[in-house]
Protein backbone atom coordinates (compact mmCIF):
# COMPACT_ATOMS: atom_id res chain seq x y z
CA UNK A 1 0.00 0.00 0.00
CA UNK A 2 2.78 2.38 1.03
CA UNK A 3 4.65 1.44 -2.13
CA UNK A 4 1.67 2.22 -4.28
CA UNK A 5 1.18 5.60 -2.59
CA UNK A 6 4.84 6.48 -2.98
CA UNK A 7 4.71 5.60 -6.66
CA UNK A 8 1.67 7.80 -7.15
CA UNK A 9 3.36 10.58 -5.20
CA UNK A 10 6.48 10.27 -7.30
CA UNK A 11 4.52 10.48 -10.54
CA UNK A 12 2.62 13.53 -9.28
CA UNK A 13 5.82 15.23 -8.17
CA UNK A 14 7.53 14.51 -11.49
CA UNK A 15 4.54 15.91 -13.31
CA UNK A 16 4.58 19.07 -11.19
CA UNK A 17 8.32 19.49 -11.77
CA UNK A 18 7.75 19.33 -15.51
CA UNK A 19 4.84 21.75 -15.37
CA UNK A 20 6.92 24.18 -13.34
CA UNK A 21 9.90 23.89 -15.67
CA UNK A 22 7.69 24.38 -18.70
CA UNK A 23 5.98 27.39 -17.16
CA UNK A 24 9.32 29.01 -16.36
CA UNK A 25 10.60 28.23 -19.85
CA UNK A 26 7.49 29.71 -21.46
CA UNK A 27 7.54 32.85 -19.31
CA UNK A 28 11.22 33.47 -20.06
CA UNK A 29 10.81 32.90 -23.78
CA UNK A 30 7.71 35.08 -24.01
CA UNK A 31 9.35 37.86 -22.01
CA UNK A 32 11.97 38.14 -24.75
CA UNK A 33 9.29 38.98 -27.31
CA UNK A 34 9.25 42.56 -26.05
CA UNK A 35 12.91 42.89 -25.06
CA UNK A 36 15.41 43.90 -27.75
CA UNK A 37 17.48 42.87 -29.61
CA UNK A 38 15.08 41.18 -32.01
CA UNK A 39 15.99 38.75 -34.74
CA UNK A 40 13.72 39.46 -37.74
CA UNK A 41 15.83 37.24 -40.03
CA UNK A 42 15.34 34.26 -37.73
CA UNK A 43 11.61 34.90 -37.38
CA UNK A 44 11.30 35.07 -41.17
CA UNK A 45 13.28 31.85 -41.54
CA UNK A 46 11.05 30.02 -39.06
CA UNK A 47 7.91 31.43 -40.69
CA UNK A 48 9.08 30.10 -44.04
CA UNK A 49 9.75 26.70 -42.49
CA UNK A 50 6.41 26.49 -40.66
CA UNK A 51 4.23 28.11 -43.29
CA UNK A 52 5.57 27.85 -46.79
CA UNK A 53 7.30 24.50 -46.63
CA UNK A 54 4.34 22.91 -44.83
CA UNK A 55 1.93 23.97 -47.56
CA UNK A 56 2.13 20.78 -49.67
CA UNK A 57 1.52 18.39 -46.82
CA UNK A 58 -1.16 20.53 -45.18
CA UNK A 59 -2.81 21.20 -48.55
CA UNK A 60 -3.00 17.48 -49.31
CA UNK A 61 -4.44 16.77 -45.87
CA UNK A 62 -7.04 19.49 -46.33
CA UNK A 63 -8.17 18.54 -49.82
CA UNK A 64 -8.70 14.90 -48.92
CA UNK A 65 -10.43 15.82 -45.68
CA UNK A 66 -12.82 18.07 -47.58
CA UNK A 67 -13.48 15.33 -50.10
CA UNK A 68 -14.14 12.67 -47.52
CA UNK A 69 -16.41 14.91 -45.44
CA UNK A 70 -18.51 15.66 -48.54
CA UNK A 71 -18.81 11.98 -49.37
CA UNK A 72 -19.53 10.84 -45.82
CA UNK A 73 -22.06 13.50 -45.02
CA UNK A 74 -23.85 12.93 -48.32
CA UNK A 75 -24.29 9.20 -47.80
CA UNK A 76 -25.08 9.69 -44.12
CA UNK A 77 -27.55 12.53 -44.60
CA UNK A 78 -29.27 10.77 -47.49
CA UNK A 79 -30.82 8.47 -44.86
CA UNK A 80 -33.02 11.32 -43.68
CA UNK A 81 -33.11 13.27 -46.95
CA UNK A 82 -30.86 16.06 -45.78
CA UNK A 83 -28.35 15.91 -48.65
CA UNK A 84 -28.74 19.65 -49.13
CA UNK A 85 -26.75 20.24 -45.94
CA UNK A 86 -23.55 18.82 -47.43
CA UNK A 87 -22.07 22.19 -48.40
CA UNK A 88 -22.73 23.65 -44.96
CA UNK A 89 -21.36 20.60 -43.18
CA UNK A 90 -18.17 20.65 -45.23
CA UNK A 91 -17.42 24.30 -44.63
CA UNK A 92 -18.28 24.20 -40.91
CA UNK A 93 -16.30 21.02 -40.20
CA UNK A 94 -13.29 22.36 -42.00
CA UNK A 95 -13.16 25.89 -40.63
CA UNK A 96 -14.08 24.96 -37.09
CA UNK A 97 -12.35 21.62 -36.60
CA UNK A 98 -10.55 19.73 -39.29
CA UNK A 99 -8.60 22.64 -40.73
CA UNK A 100 -6.86 23.71 -37.53
CA UNK A 101 -6.60 20.28 -35.90
CA UNK A 102 -5.29 18.34 -38.89
CA UNK A 103 -2.95 21.14 -39.92
CA UNK A 104 -1.78 21.35 -36.31
CA UNK A 105 -1.06 17.64 -36.12
CA UNK A 106 0.71 17.60 -39.48
CA UNK A 107 2.84 20.62 -38.61
CA UNK A 108 3.61 19.13 -35.17
CA UNK A 109 4.99 16.07 -36.93
CA UNK A 110 6.88 18.07 -39.50
CA UNK A 111 8.09 21.21 -37.78
CA UNK A 112 7.86 20.40 -34.06
CA UNK A 113 10.03 17.35 -34.60
CA UNK A 114 12.63 19.21 -36.61
CA UNK A 115 12.80 22.02 -34.03
CA UNK A 116 13.34 19.52 -31.22
CA UNK A 117 15.99 17.68 -33.22
CA UNK A 118 17.82 20.86 -34.22
CA UNK A 119 17.82 22.49 -30.79
CA UNK A 120 18.49 19.14 -29.11
CA UNK A 121 21.54 18.58 -31.31
CA UNK A 122 22.70 22.10 -30.52
CA UNK A 123 22.36 21.27 -26.84
CA UNK A 124 24.32 18.01 -26.92
CA UNK A 125 27.07 19.46 -29.12
CA UNK A 126 27.49 22.43 -26.75
CA UNK A 127 26.32 24.92 -29.39
CA UNK A 128 23.84 26.41 -26.89
CA UNK A 129 26.69 26.91 -24.40
CA UNK A 130 28.67 28.49 -27.21
CA UNK A 131 25.82 30.95 -27.84
CA UNK A 132 25.95 32.03 -24.21
CA UNK A 133 29.71 32.53 -24.30
CA UNK A 134 29.25 34.70 -27.41
CA UNK A 135 26.97 37.07 -25.45
CA UNK A 136 23.78 35.79 -27.04
CA UNK A 137 20.82 34.69 -24.99
CA UNK A 138 19.73 31.28 -26.28
CA UNK A 139 16.08 31.95 -25.43
CA UNK A 140 16.13 35.11 -27.47
CA UNK A 141 18.04 33.59 -30.36
CA UNK A 142 16.54 30.11 -30.57
CA UNK A 143 13.19 30.00 -28.79
CA UNK A 144 11.44 33.35 -29.12
CA UNK A 145 11.68 33.63 -32.94
CA UNK A 146 10.21 30.15 -33.30
CA UNK A 147 7.35 30.86 -30.88
CA UNK A 148 6.48 34.06 -32.72
CA UNK A 149 6.70 32.36 -36.08
CA UNK A 150 4.42 29.55 -34.92
CA UNK A 151 1.89 31.97 -33.50
CA UNK A 152 1.78 34.17 -36.61
CA UNK A 153 2.12 31.61 -39.39
CA UNK A 154 -0.30 28.87 -38.40
CA UNK A 155 -3.46 31.01 -38.85
CA UNK A 156 -2.35 31.88 -42.38
CA UNK A 157 -1.60 28.27 -43.13
CA UNK A 158 -4.96 27.15 -41.75
CA UNK A 159 -6.82 29.81 -43.71
CA UNK A 160 -5.31 28.40 -46.89
CA UNK A 161 -6.06 24.86 -45.70
CA UNK A 162 -9.72 25.84 -45.13
CA UNK A 163 -10.02 27.12 -48.68
CA UNK A 164 -8.35 24.05 -50.16
CA UNK A 165 -10.54 21.79 -48.03
CA UNK A 166 -13.75 23.48 -49.13
CA UNK A 167 -12.53 23.16 -52.69
CA UNK A 168 -12.01 19.41 -52.12
CA UNK A 169 -15.60 19.10 -50.91
CA UNK A 170 -16.77 21.10 -53.91
CA UNK A 171 -15.02 18.77 -56.36
CA UNK A 172 -16.62 15.67 -54.88
CA UNK A 173 -20.04 17.33 -54.60
CA UNK A 174 -20.04 18.57 -58.19
CA UNK A 175 -18.30 15.78 -60.07
CA UNK A 176 -19.37 12.75 -58.06
CA UNK A 177 -22.57 13.63 -56.31
CA UNK A 178 -24.03 15.77 -59.04
CA UNK A 179 -24.65 19.00 -57.14
CA UNK A 180 -25.27 22.24 -58.98
CA UNK A 181 -22.06 24.36 -58.68
CA UNK A 182 -23.77 27.73 -58.11
CA UNK A 183 -26.17 26.22 -55.66
CA UNK A 184 -23.40 24.44 -53.76
CA UNK A 185 -21.32 27.61 -53.45
CA UNK A 186 -24.20 29.74 -52.27
CA UNK A 187 -25.03 27.02 -49.72
CA UNK A 188 -21.39 27.12 -48.57
CA UNK A 189 -21.66 30.81 -47.79
CA UNK A 190 -25.20 30.89 -46.56
CA UNK A 191 -24.76 29.54 -43.05
CA UNK A 192 -21.11 30.40 -42.53
CA UNK A 193 -20.57 32.91 -39.71
CA UNK A 194 -17.52 34.98 -38.90
CA UNK A 195 -17.17 33.14 -35.62
CA UNK A 196 -16.69 29.81 -37.39
CA UNK A 197 -13.61 31.07 -39.16
CA UNK A 198 -12.32 33.17 -36.27
CA UNK A 199 -12.55 30.27 -33.83
CA UNK A 200 -10.60 28.09 -36.26
CA UNK A 201 -7.90 30.69 -36.75
CA UNK A 202 -7.64 31.26 -32.99
CA UNK A 203 -7.11 27.55 -32.59
CA UNK A 204 -4.48 27.69 -35.29
CA UNK A 205 -2.56 30.45 -33.51
CA UNK A 206 -2.66 28.57 -30.21
CA UNK A 207 -1.62 25.31 -31.89
CA UNK A 208 1.24 27.07 -33.66
CA UNK A 209 2.47 28.38 -30.32
CA UNK A 210 2.13 24.93 -28.73
CA UNK A 211 4.02 23.21 -31.55
CA UNK A 212 6.94 25.64 -31.35
CA UNK A 213 6.92 25.61 -27.57
CA UNK A 214 7.04 21.82 -27.33
CA UNK A 215 9.70 21.55 -30.02
CA UNK A 216 11.91 24.14 -28.33
CA UNK A 217 11.29 22.96 -24.77
CA UNK A 218 12.09 19.32 -25.39
CA UNK A 219 15.05 20.18 -27.59
CA UNK A 220 16.42 22.66 -25.06
CA UNK A 221 16.40 20.16 -22.22
CA UNK A 222 17.53 17.14 -24.19
CA UNK A 223 20.63 15.34 -22.98
CA UNK A 224 22.70 12.29 -23.60
CA UNK A 225 23.67 12.34 -27.26
CA UNK A 226 21.81 10.91 -30.22
CA UNK A 227 19.44 8.85 -28.11
CA UNK A 228 18.49 11.89 -26.03
CA UNK A 229 17.78 13.91 -29.15
CA UNK A 230 15.60 11.09 -30.50
CA UNK A 231 13.70 10.99 -27.25
CA UNK A 232 13.26 14.77 -27.29
CA UNK A 233 11.87 14.60 -30.82
CA UNK A 234 9.36 11.93 -29.87
CA UNK A 235 8.32 13.83 -26.75
CA UNK A 236 7.93 17.06 -28.69
CA UNK A 237 5.57 15.51 -31.23
CA UNK A 238 3.55 13.44 -28.76
CA UNK A 239 3.12 16.23 -26.22
CA UNK A 240 2.27 18.77 -28.92
CA UNK A 241 -0.34 16.41 -30.39
CA UNK A 242 -1.95 15.76 -27.02
CA UNK A 243 -1.95 19.43 -26.07
CA UNK A 244 -3.47 20.32 -29.45
CA UNK A 245 -6.36 17.93 -28.84
CA UNK A 246 -6.89 19.17 -25.28
CA UNK A 247 -6.75 22.85 -26.22
CA UNK A 248 -8.98 22.15 -29.19
CA UNK A 249 -11.69 21.14 -26.75
CA UNK A 250 -10.99 24.07 -24.42
CA UNK A 251 -11.13 26.67 -27.20
CA UNK A 252 -14.25 25.10 -28.67
CA UNK A 253 -15.89 25.42 -25.26
CA UNK A 254 -14.85 29.06 -25.02
CA UNK A 255 -16.33 29.91 -28.41
CA UNK A 256 -19.38 27.69 -28.65
CA UNK A 257 -19.92 26.29 -25.15
CA UNK A 258 -23.39 26.88 -23.86
Amino acid sequence: MIELLSTIGMVVLLFLIHVGKLAEFTALAVSHVVRPPFFPRLIAKSMLEIGYFSLPVVGLTAIFSGMVVALQSYTGFARFSAEGAVATVVVLTLTRELGPVLAGLMVAGRVGASMAAEIGTMRVTEQIDALTTLSTNPYKYLVTPRLLAGLLTMPLLVLIADIIGVFGGYIVAIYRLGFNPANYLSRTWEYLQTNDVVSGLTKAAVFGFIISLMGCYHGYYSKGGAQGVGQATTNAVVSAAIMILVFNYVITTLFFGK
Binding site: Q127, D129, A130, Y141
Partner: peptide, 23 residues
Amino acid sequence: FQGSALFDSLKVWENVAFGLIQG
Protein backbone atom coordinates in the same frame (compact mmCIF):
# COMPACT_ATOMS: atom_id res chain seq x y z
CA PHE B 1 34.77 24.04 -27.02
CA GLN B 2 35.87 20.44 -27.03
CA GLY B 3 33.74 19.44 -30.00
CA SER B 4 34.26 22.88 -31.61
CA ALA B 5 30.50 23.60 -31.14
CA LEU B 6 30.29 25.52 -34.41
CA PHE B 7 26.79 26.61 -35.42
CA ASP B 8 26.08 24.30 -38.32
CA SER B 9 23.28 26.46 -39.73
CA LEU B 10 25.72 29.32 -40.29
CA LYS B 11 28.61 29.70 -42.70
CA VAL B 12 32.15 29.55 -41.40
CA TRP B 13 32.69 33.31 -41.53
CA GLU B 14 29.35 33.93 -39.80
CA ASN B 15 30.46 31.59 -37.05
CA VAL B 16 33.68 33.52 -36.57
CA ALA B 17 31.88 36.87 -36.73
CA PHE B 18 29.04 35.77 -34.44
CA GLY B 19 30.37 37.42 -31.29
CA LEU B 20 31.11 40.62 -33.22
CA ILE B 21 27.66 40.86 -34.82
CA GLN B 22 25.53 39.71 -31.87
CA GLY B 23 27.67 40.70 -28.90
